[in-house]
């Protein structure tokens, strides 16, 4: 780039990761952290449309939603909740070790986080295939035994839309982790420069928190209603 000529003149021992348009590492870190927070706000609004649809149809058809939720596997959903919360812990530990510059532990905890994320996705695949065998895929292939099958179909497609969108975010998160592991292994992150790990952590926790809302709304909504 042509800009590099200009900066090169007064480049006094800049950190190699410092982009040309920032004054210092602190400014760069602030910008990337704020950028991630703003991005997460857009994510909240993105999921928000589905949460709104859920709220409306659940308040219209509370009984049907409660009954339909019995078709979800609380055990598998519960295991997945534990898996995700644990992955948030390992992610937080990874961020800590990137801050103190402990490369070995950083790589270890990133790998653990990724494995937990993959476990979550694996269990999700099992759940989805059960739904497929039970004929609970809305639209083309839907056979629901209980009352008001059309309203139950709304529940199931909300289930698939919300958990599907969440799973998509998990897949993106796991891919980000793969990159982080590679660069952490290469020793790119240091106490001076670790914002990629930090902001990926923010993203990971966000995806985790979405699940914390999805689990009770979808799986536990019928728990107190006899099915």
């Amino acid at each position: 780039m042509a800009q590099s000529e200009v900066t090169a003149q007064h480049a006094i021992a800049h950190h190699p990761a410092l982009a040309h348009h920032f004054e210092n590492m602190e400014q760069q870190r602030e910008a990337s952290t704020l950028g991630m927070w703003v991005f997460l706000i857009t994510e909240i609004m993105f999921f928000g449309g589905l949460f709104l649809a859920y709220s409306i149809y659940r308040s219209w058809y509370p009984q049907v939603f409660a009954e339909a939720s019995h078709h979800l596997d609380i055990l598998l959903g519960g295991i997945n909740t534990v898996v995700l919360i644990t992955s948030s812990l390992t992610m937080a530990l990874a961020v800590y070790h990137s801050q103190v510059g402990n490369r070995g532990k950083l790589v270890l905890f990133l790998i653990l986080t990724m494995l937990l994320g993959l476990t979550f996705l694996g269990i999700k695949v099992i759940e989805y295939s059960h739904k497929f065998h039970d004929g609970l895929i809305p639209g083309i292939h839907f056979h629901y035994e209980g009352p008001h099958p059309q309203q139950a179909q709304i529940f199931f497609w909300l289930y698939f839309a919300m958990t599907g969108l969440h799973a998509l975010h998990m897949i993106i998160g796991v891919s980000i982790l793969a990159f982080l592991i590679y660069f952490a292994w290469r020793g790119r992150y240091s106490p001076e420069y670790h914002s990629p790990v930090e902001i990926s952590g923010l993203y990971w926790h966000f995806v985790d928190i979405v699940w914390i809302f999805l689990f009770p709304l979808l799986y536990l909504v019928g728990f107190h209603v006899k099915g």
């Binding site: 928000g48 449309g49 149809y57 809305p138 639209g139 179909q153 709304i154 497609w157 839309a161």
Partner: peptide, 21 residues
Amino acid sequence: TPVLAITLLLVALERTVGIGI
């Protein structure tokens, strides 16, 4: 904008598989 995005996605789903929303 994210709300418009999810809304258009729902229209597309409604149109293709008839989810009923």
